[in-house]
Amino acid sequence: MGSHQTGSAPYYFVPGPSKWPVLAGASLLLTMAGASAWVNGVSWGPVANIIGILAVLVVLYKWFGDAIAESEGGLYSARIDVSYRWSMSWFIFSEVMFFAGFFGALFYARSVTMPWLADLDHKLIWPDFSAQWGNSPGGTIEPFAKMGPFWIPTINTALLLTSGVTLTIAHHALRAGQRGKTAFWLFATIVLGAVFMSFQAYEYAHAYSELNLKLTSGIYGSTFFMLTGFHGFHVTLGAIMLAVVLYRVMKGHFTPDHHFGFEGAAWYWHFVDVVWLGLYVVVYWL
């Protein structure tokens, strides 16, 4: 669907039948069946899972391709733009709640469970446990060192904050109609994101090899890796979005006053930033 005559956009464009949604559903079924099998050590699990994920990606690529073509074909009225704004905002809100679950777990484990496990009654079961964040009562966890804020996490904070600035510069440039400048600063943002992820990967390696801090390091390791891990995953997603946006900027898809694709990705990036600030304080400092 790309060759629409341009004219005034319809009041509210409703796309015709599309095979992508149902294919995406089928691919997800394969992904999840594969994942179930994989975690249980069934031999075909990984294959099914990976094929499923690839299929999802291909379908999404096609699907978004359709949407971009419709947008470029002039079918999206200002009203649709508003729809995209609402939907992106509430999608980000749902992501906030997802992280809230994990932050909540960290808070609960530290502020409720830990003192509880160390109180007088619990001496019955855990006579030697002292309420120190990072201690585990069971004695089944290998000793490990905790992860402090210096230096990688602090550098990473600076990187992400800077990337927020570069992204804003890119946005201003886009609004001023300077395509080259937009692309440059957008590219800089993605590079900052990539450097962030490399540092993060280095930090994980460091944690595993030198601190003996692992996913299995009790509740400390669980919350540390799940929070930073999901954050890293979201940084990756955000960077992919920005990369697509960069590609579209170079193709000349965006105009100074019609570029929600850019803004949506930018919102997402800022959200990922804010989550990091929360992590930086709660996971590394406290």
Partner: peptide, 18 residues
């Protein structure tokens, strides 16, 4: 279940009530 975290396991400092 599968990756050794301790969210709901007291021995690792977690909590089923959580």
């Amino acid at each position: 279940r599968h990756f050794g975290t301790s969210f709901f396991n007291a021995a690792g400092g977690g909590d089923p009530v959580m």
